[in-house]
Simulated scan of single mutants.
Amino acid sequence: MQGLGELENGVMDVLWTSDSPMTVREVLAKLNETRDLAYTTVMTVLDNLHRKGWVNRELQNRAYLYTPAESREEAAARVLRELLDSSGDPEAVLLHFAQSASDDETAALRRGLRRRPKR
């Protein structure tokens, strides 16, 4: 995901695929299925993601429980919006994207635009 480092993205993937809030230890266990990370590393990444607004946390007993602040799809849309707003020429960016879109993606865009409320 744009704006996230590799480890931050890995942590977000774990949280997005979880059905319930997770502790640092639970996130660490999931990440360590394919890596070897320290508890403090994951704790720091989660703290940074909280500070950046990517995750929410709630203190339960003596441990924080972490949840994504928004769904993966909402985050991707927000990042895309930020890219368009900072591009200098959002129309050109959208046209380049439309040219690269697959048939399925084009159909999804058409469906979404038809359902969009008139402004």
Rank of each mutant, 00 (worst) to 15 (best):
A29H: 11
H96L: 13
R78W: 06
E74N: 09
D36A: 07
R111V: 13
N48H: 07
E33R: 00
R78D: 07
D13R: 10
R81E: 14
V42D: 06
L95E: 15
V11F: 01
P21H: 12
S102T: 13
M12T: 11
R78Y: 08
M1W: 05
L84W: 00
E26M: 06
A107D: 15
A63W: 07
D13S: 13
R111D: 14
N9K: 06
T44D: 14
K52C: 12
A76I: 10
R115A: 15
L94N: 01
S100T: 09
E8Q: 14
T44E: 14
D85L: 10
G10H: 09
D19S: 06
R115H: 11
S20T: 13
F97S: 05
L80T: 08
E26S: 09
D36M: 04
R35H: 12
R116S: 13
L7R: 11
K118I: 12
P90I: 05
S102P: 00
K30S: 13
E73T: 10
T34C: 01
V45N: 03
A92Y: 06
E74Q: 14
L7W: 06
P90H: 10
A98G: 02
T23H: 00
P117M: 07
A107F: 09
S87P: 06
Y39N: 09
W16Q: 04
A75Q: 08
A77Y: 10
L65Q: 08
M12W: 04
T67G: 04
S71A: 07
D13T: 15
R51T: 14
D19M: 00
S20G: 12
L109S: 03
V42A: 04
R57S: 15
M12A: 09
R35I: 05
D89L: 02
T106Q: 12
G5Y: 08
A76C: 04
A63V: 12
A69H: 01
R51P: 04
T34R: 03
L113P: 02
T44P: 00
N56L: 07
T41D: 08
L109T: 04
Y66A: 05
V11I: 10
V14D: 04
V27Q: 03
L15H: 06
V14Y: 03
V93E: 03
R35A: 14
A75T: 08
P90A: 13
E8F: 03
Q60A: 12
A108P: 00
W16T: 03
D19W: 00
A38T: 13
A77C: 10
R110H: 12
G3H: 07
P21Y: 11
L7M: 12
E105A: 15
T40A: 13
A38L: 10
T41K: 01
K118C: 10
R110P: 01
L65D: 07
S87H: 09
L49V: 05
R51W: 13
N9L: 08
M1R: 01
